[in-house]
């Protein structure tokens, strides 16, 4: 069973010629089939955690370990992590001019699966996945994320999630910027992947809204670069009512 183990993760960034510590000791274990919601105020370091796990070069790991099925993730390059089974749906997906969605998806599926998918089944697979996400087939010929609306970018991220079938999916604010219909469509996409039971999901969000569609097994409150409190789904209800105030003012109450 696939397991992602994060131990005492400390991460810094360089900003204005100063080194700033953003993650201050994150501990978290995500097992295959589980869904963990990470909730926290703006600027608490949620995206930093997501990017650090994916290997973004801007973030420096100063201490701690990240293991995926016992393998040292921090030793891997960005593409190796993806091929090992990590997937990051980004808060702000990047535009790649000149590269069509269909070419991108196929190149990526080829890399992750270790062989080129058979053309005939592949075309069908992509078309059906796009239909389920209410994406017009014309998106396949458009350039990656270029001119996509916020909601279209998020659907495109979930399309990739469905096609790449990772072991661990980190979804960074996949719900932000979505209207209610789009939120439902995107959540259904995530749930289809979850229902396979083969993915561990790290759902990063600012709002409890998405948790009505995607039911987490565990909820963690993220504040000031670490997990301040962990609990079951009931913790989300508490946050819904009380907000993050208790965590930002008086510091962590673990």
């Amino acid at each position: 069973m696939a397991t992602l183990e994060i131990r005492d993760l400390h991460v810094t960034v360089e900003a204005d010629n100063a080194t700033k510590e953003i993650l201050k000791g994150v501990d978290l274990t995500v097992k295959q089939g589980e869904t963990h919601a990470i909730m926290g105020p703006n600027g608490s370091g949620k995206s930093t955690l997501a990017y650090s796990l994916a290997g973004h070069p801007k973030y420096t790991i100063t201490s701690g370990t990240v293991l995926l099925d016992g393998e040292d993730v921090l030793e891997m390059s960005v593409d190796e992590r993806a091929r090992a089974g990590l997937f990051l749906a980004m808060q702000y997906p990047v535009e790649v001019p000149g590269v069509s969605v269909s070419n991108f998806l196929r190149t990526s599926a080829t890399a992750v699966r270790g062989e080129a998918p058979k053309l005939r089944t592949w075309v069908k697979e992509v078309r059906e996945a796009m239909e389920r996400l209410n994406m017009d087939p014309s998106f396949a010929e458009r350039n990656v994320n270029e001119g996509f609306s916020g909601g279209e970018k998020k659907r495109h991220e979930i399309l990739q999630l469905e096609l790449l079938k990772p072991k661990v999916a980190i979804l960074d604010e996949t719900d932000s910027g979505l209207d209610v219909d789009a939120l439902r469509i995107v959540s259904e996409g995530v749930n289809r992947v979850r229902e396979t039971g083969e993915v561990g999901t790290l759902l990063i969000t600012h709002y409890t809204r998405i948790l009505r569609y995607i039911k987490p097994d565990h909820v963690h409150v993220f504040a000031d670069g670490r997990i301040a409190e962990s609990g079951g789904p009931e913790l989300a209800d508490k946050l819904e009512n009380e907000g993050y105030e208790a965590y930002v003012k008086g510091g962590a109450s673990a």
Binding site: D79, M90, V94, E95, V96, V99, S108, V112, L164
Partner: peptide
């Protein structure tokens, strides 16, 4: 762009070539 493509498993060299 490079990070985005690599985060989808595409090796750096192929990612550059694609772009």
């Amino acid at each position: 762009q490079l990070f985005y493509l690599m985060a989808r498993g595409i090796p750096e060299h192929d990612a550059r070539r694609l772009v």
